[in-house]
Every structure is written in structure tokens, then in C-alpha cells.
Amino acid sequence: MQAIPLEYYLVLSAIIFSIGTIGVITRRNAIIIFMSIELMLNSVNLTFVGFAANLGDASGQVFVFFVMSVAAAEAAIGLAIVIALFRIKQTVNVDEINILKW
């Protein structure tokens, strides 16, 4: 089996993480910000799996399992918050959501 070098996975993961960061900073739609956060979490997962395969250790994959569980919980809570906010403000534009401001 011809192995792909680890750096390729790391660079790919860095690119995807940066795309996710750009998405979080530039987009104003709360749901798309969520999806960008998922992108960032997944790029970190890719790094974990890459190192786990490289070092021959299962701990990285176990950690990815936990990250996925927490990401699922975060998505459920976050979308519930979005629904609750939409019910109050009729928008998901994060610029117009300022009810925490005093």
C-alpha cells in the first residue's frame, strides 16, 4: 500500500480550518455560522485521525469519537437557540440579534 504522507492531511486540515474561520467571521446567517463551526471541528478531527494512523495509536480515534458526540450535542443546542431567537426576533442575522446588550 502506498501511503499518503501525513503532511498532506495536515495541510488539507489547515486549509479547511481556515475556510471555516473565514466563514464564521464573514457570514451573518446564524445557521451558516454553525455549519462553519462544524467545518472547523471536522478539520481538527482529520488531524486527529491522521496522527492516530501515523503513530499507530487508537487514542486519537477515541478522541475523535468524543469530539463527534460533543459536536452533535452542540448542534442540537445551537439550533434550539436559533429557533428560540427566531421566534423572538424573526431573523437569524446575527447583526440584528442584540437582546443580550444592556
Binding site: 500500500m1 501511503a3 499518503i4 504522507p5 501525513l6 503532511e7 495536515l10 495541510v11 489547515a14 486549509i15 480550518f17 481556515s18 475556510i19 474561520t21 473565514i22 467571521i25 464573514t26 494512523a53 501515523n54 499507530g56
Partner: peptide, 28 residues
């Protein structure tokens, strides 16, 4: 600002990874 930050982050991460390129022994 978003693009500047994102590009800077990408540049940083990639230089970091490429300069530490001594760890690619893939023991299949």
C-alpha cells in the same frame, strides 16, 4: 478582516506543518 485573519491562519498553520516535516513515517 475575516479574509486577512483566515489567510494569516492558513499561512501560519501550513508553514508550521511543512517546517516540521520529519514525522511522516507511516507504519501501515
Amino acid at each position: 478582516l475575516g479574509w486577512v485573519f483566515g489567510s494569516a491562519l492558513a499561512f501560519l498553520l501550513m508553514t508550521l506543518y511543512i517546517t516540521h516535516s520529519s514525522l511522516s513515517q507511516f507504519n501501515a
